[in-house]
């Protein structure tokens, strides 16, 4: 937290776009940068991006909604992604998925009411010989037991 006055959403978005001005087909790198800085793509950013990139708002909206990575609402304080692809299915991923949903009381793609945890499913983290795999805030864990998952689900941990 710095003491400088907070930049407006518009200024932040426009300065991110400026950094990618020379990139070909820059929309995806820009959206990743927006996600990185703000945690989500605020719908208010859509007309700004459209204006900057000379696209229609529908084009920008279409791209945001096509890709699983781009979310329009803020995520929880912790994001847990459980791999549900075949190799992890073969070593107990379904049980991890069931446990996580039951414990948190949310479905995949949802955030707990207190904003603590966002639960997501993912199809393959490339950890297929050391599954089942879970990613917590970008960090990958392999051979995850139900007990280990319980620890990851601890709110406030």
């Amino acid at each position: 937290m710095t003491s400088s006055p907070p930049q407006s959403l518009e200024d932040r978005v426009r300065s991110i776009v400026a950094e990618h001005r020379d990139d070909r087909g820059a929309l995806l790198p820009i959206l990743h940068a927006v996600m990185e800085e703000m945690g989500h793509v605020d719908p208010a950013a859509i007309p700004i991006l459209a204006d900057e990139l000379n696209l229609s708002r529908a084009d920008v909206y279409g791209v945001i909604t096509f890709y699983h990575d781009f979310r329009q609402t803020p995520p929880g304080r912790k994001t847990i992604r459980i791999c549900r692809a075949e190799a992890c299915q073969a070593v107990g991923a379904a049980q991890l998925a069931d446990n996580a949903r039951a414990r948190l009381g949310v479905g995949f793609g949802e955030t707990t009411a207190d904003g603590a945890v966002t639960l997501e499913q993912v199809f393959c983290l490339g950890n297929c010989a050391t599954g089942p795999s879970v990613q917590v805030d970008g960090r990958l864990y392999g051979r995850v037991s139900p007990e280990q998952l319980d620890g990851m689900l601890e709110v406030g941990a």
Partner: peptide, 10 residues
């Protein structure tokens, strides 16, 4: 040469 990152779409 540039690296580009996908968006989670199979």
């Amino acid at each position: 040469l540039f690296v580009r990152v996908g968006g989670g779409a199979y």
